[in-house]
């Protein structure tokens, strides 16, 4: 059936090769140097990876298409910095597979949202944005509160992240589900291990206000609260300037 005996004659092949030749150069020239850039700029040894709960929250953020309206990239423009905080550094999205810089601000930039509002504010806002911001046009995400967070695949999520270069340890991968549970249940036995593995600064709280259940709301709020807080950005730039 797939008879390939028509000779694929020379002109058509030549045209194809010429197209590939002309079209590939620009991309290679622009992208290739970015893979060496890591050696020369910005190393951030203190930067931590996302906890399993935050990673799950990030996946929900992607699933709901939040990036369509919220950017996570503060430009080096004065009004951007005055409005949203310190401009975004390349290193801050180093573990973001894929990046979520976004291209449109139908809502505000949220690169430095973490810690700006309380967990309770976020939960209320996600359940119905207009309860908190009357003129908001953001969709309501009330059902996040009803959905139990999927835990069975957390270890393999972390493993896939490690496969693309995020430095998760074997221990982190093995305990992913327990850590997710522990991070949202400060009173449980699992809580201490989270801080141990991911650092003392990790938020360990009942994000959605309900310790009974681990919901998608827990995960999403945990993610939103870490935005911009993976490294201490002011200390980072100060260090870079003295060097």
């Amino acid at each position: 059936m797939f008879k390939l005996h028509y000779k694929l004659e020379r002109r058509a092949i030549g045209l194809t090769l010429a197209i590939i030749g002309a079209a590939s150069i620009g991309g290679i020239v622009e992208i290739a140097p970015l893979f060496t850039i890591a050696e020369t700029v910005e190393a951030a040894p203190d930067m931590r990876v996302y906890t399993p709960l935050e990673l799950a929250g990030r996946n929900i953020y992607m699933r709901e298409g939040c990036y369509a309206c919220h950017s996570q990239m503060i430009r080096t423009l004065k009004d951007d910095v005055d409005r949203y905080g310190h401009y975004s550094l390349a290193v801050e999205s180093k573990y973001d597979h894929p990046m979520l810089w976004g291209s449109k601000r139908t809502g505000p930039d949220i690169a430095r949202l973490g810690g700006k509002y309380s967990d309770e504010w976020h939960v209320r806002h996600l359940i119905n944005p207009r309860d908190v911001v009357p003129v908001s046009i953001m969709p309501a995400y009330g059902w996040l509160m009803e959905r139990t967070l999927r835990m069975d695949d957390l270890s393999s999520q972390l493993a896939a992240q490690r496969a693309v270069g995020v430095p998760y340890t074997g221990e982190m991968i093995a305990n992913a589900a327990a850590d997710a549970y522990g991070q949202a249940n400060p009173d449980s036995n699992a809580a201490a291990a989270v801080a141990e593995r991911y650092g003392e600064a990790t938020n360990v709280r009942t994000f959605d206000g309900d310790a009974q259940r681990l919901t998608e709301m827990d995960a999403l709020v945990a993610y939103l609260q870490i935005l911009g807080n993976l490294i201490d950005v002011n200390q980072k730039t100060a260090a870079a300037e003295t060097e």
């Binding site: 150069i25 140097p33 060496t36 890591a38 050696e39 020369t40 270069g165």
Partner: peptide
């Protein structure tokens, strides 16, 4: 992902070769 060429070389190639 490390590439054996230094970053400066890469950037130099990119800037001249393209033109």
């Amino acid at each position: 992902m490390t590439v054996p060429i230094s970053h400066e070389t890469m950037v130099w190639i990119a800037k001249t070769f393209g033109l």
